[in-house]
């Protein structure tokens, strides 16, 4: 009977692995039948472009969720880094003209915010959702305070090229997102941290027994996520040509929806950055399809909310949890 249990477990694994992809394909076919424009090259590139920022953000968030933690500071960090990068390139408020050198600065600030998340969460032992909620709001507050509620306009075409420029007809933002994905995939598959993230998310005690520096890894992963959010902030600023505190509104929701819908379990240990890519496309395709079908854009958050519930309900191995809070 033990063996039977094992097979049913891997059966569940199989379902988890392929269900998101099946959903994505079904969605594409359905929307394509409804509106043939969906399948046009132009729309395809539009889809890729709108997936770029969510992909970058999801790369960071996936690692955190794989550890069984959560990061609610996405919007705070993205807003902060977008505002800072806007002020460092040629703009209508400050006189800095760092050009592309502003990018690593903004990413580093994202990384530092993530580091703060990690250090507070690990050292003070505060639950991650509370820590990141507080730090995220602080980030949002800093972004608002720097600009005093105003908007900064970017006047640096080289910087905006990061999002708007095209190579082989595909926007730069997409190439950057692809690069971010490859980096994340390498981290996940080819580094020690990658394996340790899974180990911590599956069973922290076993991870400790194996001599894994659990605390350091947790902090490092939060900092790493901050770097990705920083890059996300840069892309957002480049795309809109401006920076303001509300630039990241709705990003947290999309990010968590995408990660969870892609099949990464909130309980940790199950999933991957590849899943998150599929999740991003499910969310983006759905949003695109809704626009094509003439559904009001404000319905999207509602649909995403329902998607989260449905995905989590389908994927969560509830037998493992006795008490849920």
């Amino acid at each position: 009977m033990q063996t039977r249990k094992a097979t049913s477990f891997s059966y569940l694994e199989q379902w988890r692995r392929w269900a998101p992809l099946a959903v994505l394909i079904a969605l594409c076919i359905l929307i394509g039948l409804f509106n043939p424009n969906f399948l046009s090259t132009g729309n395809f590139i539009r889809l890729l472009n709108s997936a770029a920022i969510p992909v970058v953000l999801c790369m960071g968030a996936t690692f955190i969720i794989l550890m069984g933690s959560i990061d609610l500071s996405v919007e705070g960090i993205v807003a902060l880094t977008a505002v800072i990068v806007s002020l460092l390139v040629a703009n209508d408020i400050t006189t800095y003209k760092l050009g592309l050198f502003a990018v690593p600065v903004a990413m580093a600030i994202g990384g530092i915010m993530g580091l703060v998340n990690g250090v507070v969460h690990v050292k003070l032992k505060t639950p991650s959702f509370m820590t990141t909620l507080g730090i995220g709001f602080a980030g949002l507050g800093i972004a608002t305070a720097i600009l005093g509620g105003l908007t900064v306009r970017i006047a640096d075409p080289t910087f905006r090229y990061l999002s708007l420029g095209r190579i082989l007809g595909i926007p730069m933002a997409v190439w950057i997102a692809l690069a971010a994905f490859l980096v994340a995939l390498t981290i996940q598959q080819r580094t020690r941290i990658g394996a340790w993230i899974y180990a911590i998310g599956t069973d922290e005690v076993t991870a400790r027994f194996a001599g894994i520096p659990v605390e350091k890894t947790r902090i490092l992963v939060f900092a790493l996520a901050g770097l990705f959010y920083g890059l996300g902030g840069v892309l957002a600023a480049a795309q809109f040509g401006q920076g303001h505190a509300l630039i990241a509104q709705g990003r947290l929701f999309t990010t968590i929806t995408a990660v969870v819908v892609g099949g990464t379990a909130l309980s940790g240990g199950v999933g991957s950055v590849v899943n998150s890519i599929i999740g991003v496309f499910i969310v983006v395709v759905l949003a695109n399809g809704m626009v094509l079908m003439g559904i009001e854009p404000y319905v999207q958050q509602g649909v995403q909310g329902l998607l989260i519930i449905a995905a989590v309900a389908l994927a969560l191995d509830r037998s493992r949890l006795s008490v849920v809070k």
Partner: peptide, 26 residues
Amino acid sequence: VSTRLRIPSFIATLAVSGVVLSAGYW
């Protein structure tokens, strides 16, 4: 959502808040 589907409350209420926000717009 939280009790029947056994989903942590922060994610259940976050998801519901998306739906509620849409309802508010509506």
